[in-house]
Amino acid sequence: MDRDQATRQGPGFNRRDFLKGSGAAVAATAVTTAVVEQQAAAQQQAAKLVSAAPQAITLNVNGQDHKLTVEPRVTLMAALRDDLNLTGCKDVCDRANCGACTVLIDGKPVYSCTRFAIEVAGQKVVTAESLHTAEKTDLVVEKFCEHDGMQCGFCTPGFVMAVRGFCNAHPKATLDDCRKGLGGNICRCGTYAGVLQAAFDTAQAAN
C-alpha cells in the first residue's frame, strides 16, 4: 500500500554517503564500524537539519528499539507498516480524516499518517499489536468482543487504540464523553454503538 515505494530509497544511497553527509566520516577511520554506526545515529537524532536522503533513526515501538533508514518524508504510518511490518495501523484515508491509523505516542492517541517517522524518534510508540500477546489481552480488546464492536474490522485497530488512549486520559468517562471524544474514528459498517459501549465499559472498569 505504500504509494511512494518506488522512490523510497534514493538510487545510489549507501552507508558511506550517509556518513559523509552527516559529517561523521572524520571519526570513521579510528573506531570500529559498530561505534561509527552508533555515533552516526546519535548525531542524526541531534542534527537540526537533515537532507532529503534516507536517514538512520531509531523508533521505539511497543517497548522495543528498531533501527531503520527512512527519508524525512516517510510518515510514521508508512514506517510502521512497510519497514516494521506492523500492519495493525491501517492505511485508509492517509489524510487525517478516518482514524484507522491511530497509534499512541507517549501515551496519546495520534493519527500516524500525520507524523513523520523522523519526528517520532526518541518517543514511545504503541500500536494495536501490543494489546494482544501470548501473556495478556487488553481489556479494550475483550470489551470490543463482548459488545460486538466490529464488522469488517478495517477500522477496528485504530478504534481500539483511540479507545485505549481515551480511557487512559478519561478514566471516569460517561457514554456521552466517549461519543464526543471518539469522533475522530470512522466506521463505514456503523459499529459505533458497540464501540461506544466497549469504550464506556473500559473507562468504568478503570475506576
Partner: peptide, 30 residues
C-alpha cells in the same frame, strides 16, 4: 522529498526558513 529542519529556538526557525526558497512550517501536522 524534502529536507527536514528541527530548530530549537525561534531565531533558528527564522534562519532555517530564510535559507531556501520554498519552505513549509510543520506544527501539529494534522
Amino acid at each position: 522529498s524534502f529536507e527536514y529542519a528541527r530548530p530549537e529556538t525561534e531565531a533558528e526557525a527564522v534562519a532555517f526558513l530564510g535559507e531556501v526558497e520554498s519552505t513549509a512550517i510543520l506544527a501539529g501536522g494534522t
